[in-house]
Amino acid sequence: MKFDTAYSLSLDDKLSIYEVRELNFDETVDFDSDQDSFLCPNDACRAAFDTGNALSTFNAKNVNYLRTPHFKNKTTTRHIDGCRYASTHKTATGESDDDREENFPSEWVLTRRQYPRKPALTGVDASVPQDPAKVPSNRTTTSHGTNDSSPDKTSVFAHPVECFVSNIDDKDKLKRMPLKIGEHTATYWTFFKKIEYLQDNKGLIYWGKIKEIKDYTSSFRIDFEKKVWLNKKPYSVNVYLSKKLIENYRKRKAFLEQIKAAVDSERALYCFFYGVTPELKQVPSKKNPEQTFGVFSANIENLDHLIIREAPGVQ
């Protein structure tokens, strides 16, 4: 059985698998999921066993992934009777339980969550908790409540994107599931807008198939395959990623690894972004700088709010 949330022993808190991925790639924090222990998110179940009763992670450290990241039981993981994380059955439709994200956050929080570590224990080996049977402290977080259910909120863009992509064949579900971003609430289907329809509304998550990624060594431009029609004329669409933006990014190494691989990739890749809306601009022609041509373009302002990935089925 796969699930989205687990208790992190090193952070003394419940984390989603997407938050674990964020921490693994964040160069400003000291975190390695391989060195942590993840336990059952059910407080009562976790309290019944010692800290060796751990879970494993799937796609927690892969920069690019095709199957949904998750926590899962090891063959040795035990649960109390009645714990909903004890099930090992496959989905009712017979699909692999790696194929779909079922934990839809109802809110995407634009402010990044902080992860304070629990205080070091004086005179005690910090890797051994004083009382492993206790439930986690009632620390207030922006993402999780005190029960074992999946989080209603997330600050990681990859989570709602995975919900959309992995459920793209179930449009009725996407049209039912609510999502709040900032002060606006709509459905997943409404918030995710194809790039060619970006004029319909601002403040949405725009996405589209990538035509080409221009590598300018220290900056990049992502060109989309689809064009925007305005006054019966087609215009190209692109987004620009500046040198300063990339150099100051806390996940710089992982991002450069991903985008450089994408530049040379022959696979169909898609870009999802939020926070800016490409607008029609006049840019000088390379062949004749005195002439200009129109293009819908935007400068990305936050790399946490941009994703490049494969997305089967989202044509």
Rank of each mutant, 00 (worst) to 15 (best):
Y240M: 12
Y240Q: 13
Y240A: 13
Y240L: 11
L241I: 14
L241Q: 04
L241A: 03
L241M: 12
S242G: 12
S242W: 13
S242P: 04
S242K: 13
S242I: 12
S242N: 10
K243C: 14
K243H: 13
K244L: 15
K244M: 15
K244S: 15
K244T: 15
K244R: 15
K244Q: 15
L245M: 10
L245R: 07
L245A: 07
L245H: 04
L245P: 00
L245W: 04
I246G: 10
I246C: 10
N248D: 15
N248Y: 12
N248P: 03
N248F: 11
N248I: 09
N248V: 09
N248H: 14
N248A: 12
Y249F: 15
Y249M: 11
R250S: 15
R250M: 13
R250H: 15
R250F: 14
R250A: 13
R250C: 15
K251V: 04
K251F: 02
K251T: 08
R252L: 03
R252S: 03
R252I: 04
R252E: 08
R252T: 07
K253Y: 02
K253H: 03
K253A: 10
K253N: 06
K253D: 04
A254D: 03
A254M: 11
A254Q: 10
A254T: 07
A254P: 01
F255L: 11
F255D: 04
L256K: 03
L256W: 02
L256F: 01
L256M: 06
L256R: 01
L256A: 01
E257W: 02
E257S: 07
E257A: 06
E257Q: 10
Q258G: 10
Q258N: 12
Q258K: 12
Q258W: 02
I259N: 00
I259P: 00
I259M: 00
K260Q: 12
K260M: 08
K260V: 08
A261W: 05
A261I: 02
A262G: 00
A262N: 00
A262S: 05
A262Q: 01
A262D: 01
V263T: 02
V263M: 01
V263E: 01
V263K: 02
V263N: 01
V263Y: 01
V263C: 07
D264I: 03
D264W: 01
S265A: 11
S265N: 09
S265G: 09
E266W: 04
E266D: 10
E266L: 05
R267H: 09
R267K: 11
R267C: 08
R267G: 06
R267N: 11
A268Q: 13
A268D: 14
A268H: 09
A268C: 08
L269E: 06
L269K: 08
L269C: 09
L269P: 01
L269Y: 10
Y270T: 06
Y270M: 09
Y270V: 08
